[in-house]
Nucleic acid binder design. Structure first.
Lengths: 201, 201
DNA sequence: ACCAGTTTTGTCAATAGTGACAGAACGCGC
DNA sequence: GCGCGTTCTGTCACTATTGACAAAACTGGT
C-alpha cells in the first residue's frame, strides 16, 4: 500500500511507463477502472506484472499519473513570483495560471467520477493538499531570512493557505452547478478571507 | 484498499473485534507489525481471515483502533463548550482536556515508531486531520444561525483550525526533544497565531 | 567490440484485501 | 420452544501488492 511511485531514470524506463499509461487509459476507457486488472494492463504494455508495480505503486496511481507534473509546475510558478509579494497573492497567481489540458482533464474526470470509489478520491485529495502545503512551505522557507527561527509560523501559514484553497474546492464540489469560474471565485474568497483572521470566530 | 472499518452492531461482533485486537497486540509486540500476518492474527483470535477483514479494513487499522474513540471524545468535548465561546478557545480546551491512557499510548507509539513505514503514519495523520476538521466544521455549523449561507466561511475556518493544530504537531515531530508540554505550547501558539491573520505574509 | 558496474525486468512465492454466496447464530414475537 | 428476518461467519476464488534473487539490457571507459 505505500505507493512509492518509483522515479524513473533512463529513457528505457520512460518508454515502459508511457506504454503502461497508454495501455491503462485504453482499458480504463473501454471497460472501466475496476473491471481492468493490473495484469491486463501489464500484458497490453508488453511487460511483466512486477514491472508494472515498479513504475506505478498501484493500479489507481495511473489515474493520477499527471499529478506529479502539475505539482512541479506549481512549485516553479511559485518560485517565479516576485520577491516580497504576499504569499496569498503568489499562490493565487500560481493557481490561476495553471495550463489545463481540457481534453485530458475531462476524460480522466469522467472516469474518476463514474468508476472510482469516492473514498479513493478523497484520499488523493488529502495527499494533494499535503503536497500543496509542502510546496508553499518550501516557498516561504526560501523567502525567509531566518527559516529556523520561524519554523512554526511558516508551517502554520503554509498549511492554512493550503487549507483555504481546498476548503474552496470542497464547497465547490458540493454544489450542483460547477463552473471553473465559480471554483476560482471560491478559492480566491477563501484565501483572502484568512489573510486578516479567521472568517468565523 | 478502501478500508471501510465496518461498524459493529451486536455484542457478538464486539467480542470478535476484541479478540482480534488482543491477538494482534500480542503478536505485534512479540514479533513486530510487518512480521505478523493477518492470517496469524485471525487464527489466534479463532476466526477466519475473511472475518478479520470484516472488522478491520486492514492489518494496520489495528494500530489505530483506539482512534475512533478519541474522535468521538473530541466531538463531545467540543459540543460541551459554552455557547458564544470563540472556536479557537473551544478547540484548545477540548484538545487539552483529552484523557490520555499513558500506558497504552506509549506501547502503541513505540510500535508505530519502530516497525511502521513512516508514510503509513503520515497518511494516517492526514486522515486524522481531515476528521478533526470535519468535527470542527460540524461544531461551527451547529453554532451558526445560517449555515447554508456561511458554508465557505465555516469550511475555511474549520480547515484552518485543523491545519494550525497539525502544523504544531509537525514542528513538534521534527524536534529532537519532544515533551507533552512543548506540544501543547506549539499547538496553542499555532492556533492563536491565525486568529488575527496569517503569521507570515 | 569487450569488460565491469548500474539499471531494469522477469520469475517465483507470499501476503493483503475483496466479492459472492451459503450456512450458522442471534434477537424477537407467538 | 418454534419460526422468521437479520446479522455474522466461513469457504472459495480472484485480484492487488511486495520482497528476494537472477538474467538481460544499457552505460561509460579502453
Amino acid at each position: 500500500m505505500p505507493r512509492m511511485a518509483s522515479p524513473p531514470q533512463t529513457a528505457r524506463s520512460e518508454r515502459t511507463r508511457e506504454a503502461l499509461r497508454r495501455a491503462a487509459m485504453v482499458r480504463f476507457l473501454a471497460q472501466g477502472v475496476e473491471e481492468t486488472s493490473a495484469e491486463q494492463i501489464a500484458r497490453d504494455a508488453g511487460v511483466s506484472l512486477r514491472t508494472f508495480y515498479r513504475h506505478f505503486g498501484s493500479k489507481h496511481d495511473l489515474l493520477f499519473a499527471d499529478y506529479d507534473a502539475g505539482l512541479h509546475w506549481f512549485r516553479r510558478a511559485l518560485a517565479d513570483r516576485p520577491d516580497g509579494e504576499p504569499v496569498i497573492e503568489s499562490v493565487q497567481a500560481a493557481i490561476f495560471a495553471f495550463p489545463y489540458d481540457v481534453d485530458a482533464v475531462t476524460q480522466i474526470a469522467s472516469l474518476r467520477a463514474d468508476e472510482l470509489d469516492p473514498s479513493r478520491i478523497v484520499r488523493h485529495m488529502r495527499e494533494v493538499q499535503s503536497d500543496f502545503a509542502h510546496a508553499v512551505r518550501d516557498h516561504l522557507e526560501h523567502r525567509s531570512d531566518d527559516p529556523g527561527n520561524e519554523a512554526l509560523a511558516i508551517t502554520v501559514t503554509a498549511r492554512c493557505v493550503a487549507a483555504a484553497v481546498f476548503a474552496g474546492m470542497e464547497v465547490w464540489m458540493q454544489r450542483e452547478e460547477r463552473s471553473l469560474a465559480d471554483l476560482a471565485e471560491l478559492c480566491r474568497t477563501a484565501l483572502t478571507s484568512i489573510a486578516d483572521g479567521l472568517p468565523v470566530r
